[in-house]
Simulated scan of single mutants.
Amino acid sequence: MQTPISRYWWVFLLRGIAALLIGLLAIFVPGITFGTLVLFLGAYMFIDGIFSIIAGISARKQSRDWGWYIVSGLFGIIIGVITFANPFATGIALIYIAGVWAIVAGIVEIIVAVRLRKEITGEGWYIAGGILTILFGILIFINPVAGALTLTIIFGIYAIVAGVMLVSLSMRLRKKYKSHRSIPVT
Rank of each mutant, 00 (worst) to 15 (best):
P4E: 15
W9D: 14
W9Y: 14
W10R: 05
F12M: 10
L14Q: 13
L14I: 15
I17A: 14
A18H: 05
A19F: 08
L21P: 02
L24N: 03
V29Q: 02
P30M: 03
F34D: 01
F40G: 05
F40Q: 06
Y44W: 11
Y44F: 12
F46E: 01
F46C: 05
I47Q: 02
D48I: 04
I50H: 06
I50C: 12
F51H: 14
S52Y: 09
I53N: 06
G56T: 11
D65Q: 04
D65S: 13
D65H: 10
W68D: 06
W68M: 11
S72P: 02
S72V: 06
S72N: 10
G73C: 04
L74M: 09
F75E: 03
I78Q: 00
I78E: 00
I79W: 00
I79E: 00
V81G: 00
T83H: 06
P87A: 04
G91C: 11
A93R: 08
L94R: 04
I95H: 04
I97Y: 11
G99N: 04
W101H: 06
A102T: 02
I103K: 07
V104D: 08
G106N: 06
V108Y: 14
V112H: 15
K118W: 11
K118C: 10
I120G: 10
T121F: 15
W125R: 07
G129Q: 10
G137C: 01
F141E: 01
I142T: 04
V145N: 06
G147T: 02
A159S: 12
I160L: 05
V164T: 13
L169M: 15
L169D: 15
K176M: 15
S179R: 12
S179F: 05
H180W: 11
P184L: 13
P184Y: 07
T186N: 15
